[in-house]
Write a protein that binds this DNA or RNA. Sequence first.
DNA 1: TATGAATGAGGATTCATTCAT
DNA 2: TATGAATGAATCCTCATTCAT
Lengths: 201, 201, 201, 201
Amino acid sequence: MKRNKPKYKQIIDAAVIVIAENGYHQAQVSKIAKQAGVADGTIYLYFKNKEDILISLFKEKMSLFVDKIEEVIAGKQTVSEKLLVMIENHCKILSDDHHLAIVTQLELRQSNKEIRLKINDVLKGYLKLIDTILVSGVESGEFSANLDVRLARQMIFGTLDEMVTTWVMNEQKYDLTAQVPTIHKLLLQGCGGRNTISLGG
Amino acid sequence: MKRNKPKYKQIIDAAVIVIAENGYHQAQVSKIAKQAGVADGTIYLYFKNKEDILISLFKEKMSLFVDKIEEVIAGKQTVSEKLLVMIENHCKILSDDHHLAIVTQLELRQSNKEIRLKINDVLKGYLKLIDTILVSGVESGEFSANLDVRLARQMIFGTLDEMVTTWVMNEQKYDLTAQVPTIHKLLLQGCGGRNTISLGG
Amino acid sequence: MKRNKPKYKQIIDAAVIVIAENGYHQAQVSKIAKQAGVADGTIYLYFKNKEDILISLFKEKMSLFVDKIEEVIAGKQTVSEKLLVMIENHCKILSDDHHLAIVTQLELRQSNKEIRLKINDVLKGYLKLIDTILVSGVESGEFSANLDVRLARQMIFGTLDEMVTTWVMNEQKYDLTAQVPTIHKLLLQGCGGRNTISLGG
Amino acid sequence: MKRNKPKYKQIIDAAVIVIAENGYHQAQVSKIAKQAGVADGTIYLYFKNKEDILISLFKEKMSLFVDKIEEVIAGKQTVSEKLLVMIENHCKILSDDHHLAIVTQLELRQSNKEIRLKINDVLKGYLKLIDTILVSGVESGEFSANLDVRLARQMIFGTLDEMVTTWVMNEQKYDLTAQVPTIHKLLLQGCGGRNTISLGG
DNA sequence: TATGAATGAGGATTCATTCAT
DNA sequence: TATGAATGAATCCTCATTCAT
């Protein structure tokens, strides 16, 4: 659809706010339209249906994730460092946008199976990025040659996801980014790697 | 409610099947009643409302989890073995009951926030069990004294949950239990432990 | 039905209490049974259905009304006196039984048209009693020969009913019987009669 | 709500017809919508809920009562005349709209206590109007200075209400307005007034 | 493009009544 | 007589989507 028109992004941003503040099941199209400052019918000039808003929302935000993380790991040499900046940025992006954190960790998961499958398709881009990091670790010898990349990636993503969800469920009361070094160490060890961050031993 | 009456369990089992086969939002009370072989009104002799069915379902099934795993880890000495049987049983219980796996990993997460909070309360019993295993590892010296138990537990649960969800989303096409040794190794390493399973190196 | 059995009256009295305390639409058969100290099914050994309880209740209580008032007017000579003791007793019976007042003035009127028509049949006995008083006044010359007995009776019953309903709606906060002399004067005047009560002028 | 929109009145009129013809408990929202020629959901653009339809219905119709009667008594000098035109119009409005008569005298009284209390609030406007007439009679000397206005009003309203209800229960088989002069005389006498209508003696 | 009034399908829950014991 | 577990019909309201303007 017309993704470059200002109203496209306007509606997506409105959706994030409305879903975060009202919850998934109370985020009616009319509320999103009101928040975006447009009429209900206008929504349907930019999105096929409500489901399309949610998928598009996830796509837009997830691409920010992937772009940002691709950018920061490009400058890193060791897999330990790559993993660290990935974890850092994962936590930072969600830490900086409380609404987005609520929407991705809690609310969007209440959508039905069909939507969740489509969201998972979008997520695959991020999962591939993690795979890339892991493969680079195997190739450089930092990780064992027989590391099960698929399972290791499930461990990394599952751990990060659980960590962020717990933080959101605890109403974001503590500093998520403070946990980054510890979780980095756990995951790196899990993959059989050694810490090569400047301060590490 | 009347938890010992056969109809109580009969209705819960019917709910698992109906939700797994129709999806959360298509699991009408009348469908559950029909599957259970009782009248719609009979449901309300055993449950306060539909929400109560879902919470009770989760409680009943989760207590199977906790009871079973408490039982099997009791006979194990090393934390490596405890972790292994926990992972084994986590995967086995869900592997053996495809309907239950769909319900816990996909469908029940579509419930509204209120229900999810109550489900999370129930889940805490399982999380505490994981903590207990981790603490025993710290105390025995198998894990480092400064292991962050909270984060390690988030890693373990997040990893298992992601692994099972991925398997369910792939329509349970491969053997989940085959992944147990590999994931055990990853998680054990993550926590800084050494494999003390007989066959391990 | 078995009107002499103790449980018959037991159930009717329970119904009065339950309806008065819970309101017509919250007076379920199961509540009445519980209040009466019998099982739900037992109700149906004494009454055909719920409607039958309500009609029977009204019949029983209304016959108290008619019997009592027939008794007291028998000893009175003038129509003024007859009217007075009728009004006195009408107010007294309802004043003495707060539950009954709530049930007859407010709750029973919420029943459907069918039940209300049957209740009206029962009420006719009372209306005929008023007619008898009025006719005696016409025959004795105390009232004009061309008094419209039917309309005069509607005035008397309508006035008493409105007076008692207003009192019940005001939560029975004032003394209903204190209004008896005044309302007696208004109604007697309305019918064209003169006050022949000892204290009257 | 949007009281000036034609659909507002359209729905209220439909409700009167549906309730009169089907009875209070058989007046489903879908029936009212069908009668009004709108979709079920449209009802909720104009009314908060079903209860709101009933209260609004009563408000609209009762204001016709009050407005009309205020208008006609304004041109009358004596309290006897004022009372007469009030009774005339009370009977005429209900006589002219058989559906409305059924709804106000029989069906709306089946509503639950909450709705009835709100209806009673609306009714107070009419009762105050009767009080105004009575007070004007006291002030002009047509009624005794010690007339109990409150009880006299209860007599007047109770009598009219009983008269109309009896007429409705008898399926409106006779001419209600033919009773106006007689009931006027009874009530006027009751209040201690003299007939000053041109034809009266 | 933009509007917003109108649409209409769909489901949890209550409670009078029955009947096997 | 007495019980009480089981039955099952019946309805208000929400909200994604459309379409005439």
